[in-house]
């Protein structure tokens, strides 16, 4: 039985939850400054990376080989993650370079949406500066990089990636890649198991329940809220053993892509950021005990309302 060649795509993002209220408040005029916050794996991609390792383990028990590869688009800050993946058994590790060492502008070089020129011109809010925002709001370009990598370089037949990533939170990349490759795509995947005959058993949440599907690659699996949400850790020994393994760093041009032209073709263009005021009255209900407070809440807010529900 032939091996399954899997490629997992992942994104390393700034930890948006580590930004403070003041940072968000300034976003409409100054953009979001993410350069200084620590990096994390996009949560859905972390699930994808671990599910693929689990698939590989389970396949090995069935005597099937699963060859794992990992791809990310980003700057050097991605390399420690790739090294970790190599140590965990990912045989191929590649980065399409963005930022200082690539032909794609790097988000954290300036923070997203700094758009100083637009801001100074006083147009509604600051324009999102495409050059500075890298590929954060360019899902079509991200998808064409991934698809080109699969077709020109990796020749994988199972693509696993997170169903969505920030800051755009669009969720369209998996389907775009599927379209470009002509593959089917299953989204909100929560489990992937091998059947031993080249087929996979995949669990996916749909709008009205959990779908269990048997499929044969090639296909795209977009991972959603899987209960497997943390990547395992390689031992220092694993790291030492695989220390010499190479991480491929590619320029978009190596894949035959002209990123500037691709960006110009992007049909959905971000133009501004708005802050959100979520404040409500926040009336604090006093009382000595939970019971007192619950009683006051009921009497002054709920008694009539609840009748209508």
């Amino acid at each position: 039985m032939s091996a399954v060649r899997v490629l997992v795509c992942f994104k390393v993002t700034p930890d948006f939850e580590a930004l403070r209220e003041a940072d968000w408040a300034a976003a409409a005029t100054q953009g979001v400054q993410t350069r200084y916050v620590r990096r994390v794996l996009n949560c859905f991609d972390e699930s994808a990376l671990e599910l693929a390792l689990g698939l590989s383990d389970a396949a090995a028990r069935l005597g099937v080989t699963v060859e794992l590869g990992a791809l990310s688009i980003g700057g050097r800050e991605v390399d420690p993650y790739l090294k970790t993946l190599v140590a965990l058994g990912y045989e191929r590790a590649a980065r399409v370079a963005a930022g200082a060492d690539g032909d794609i502008a790097d988000t954290d070089a300036a923070g997203v949406g700094v758009g100083a020129a637009a801001g100074a011109a006083g147009v509604d809010g600051a324009g999102l500066d495409r050059a500075a925002s890298g590929l954060d709001f360019a899902p079509a370009v991200v998808a064409s990089i991934i698809a080109s990598y699969v077709l020109r370089a990796d020749h994988s037949d199972l693509l696993v990636l997170g169903c969505r990533s920030g800051p755009g939170d669009g969720g369209t990349v998996p389907f775009r890649v599927a379209e470009a490759l002509g593959w089917p795509c299953l989204t909100r995947v929560t489990s992937i198991e091998p059947l031993g005959d080249g087929r996979l058993r995949v669990g996916a949440m749909v709008d009205d329940g959990l779908l269990r599907v048997t499929l044969r690659p090639p296909c795209v699996l977009a991972v959603g809220n899987a209960l497997v949400s943390h990547l395992r850790a390689p031992t220092l020994k694993d790291r030492l053993e695989r220390r010499e393994r190479r991480i491929d760093v590619l320029a978009a041009a190596d894949l035959g892509l002209d990123i500037a032209a691709e960006l110009r073709r992007e049909a959905c263009v971000p133009t501004a950021l708005e802050t959100i005021d979520r404040r409500r009255r926040g009336a604090v209900i006093a009382g000595a005990t939970p019971r007192d407070k619950a009683r006051t809440l009921f009497d002054s807010y709920l008694s009539d309302l609840i009748e209508t529900l």
Binding site: A18, R35, Y36, R38, S229, H230, R232, A233
Partner: peptide, 30 residues
């Protein structure tokens, strides 16, 4: 210095971080 200041602002461990870490351990045994 902004790297250090940003790191510093997010240092303490409340119950949510502790529970999240427990969950990481439960899944990874790491």
């Amino acid at each position: 210095s902004a790297y250090i200041e940003t790191w510093f602002n997010d240092l303490c461990w409340g119950p949510d971080k502790i529970t999240a870490e427990d969950e990481r351990i439960r899944q990874t045994l790491n």
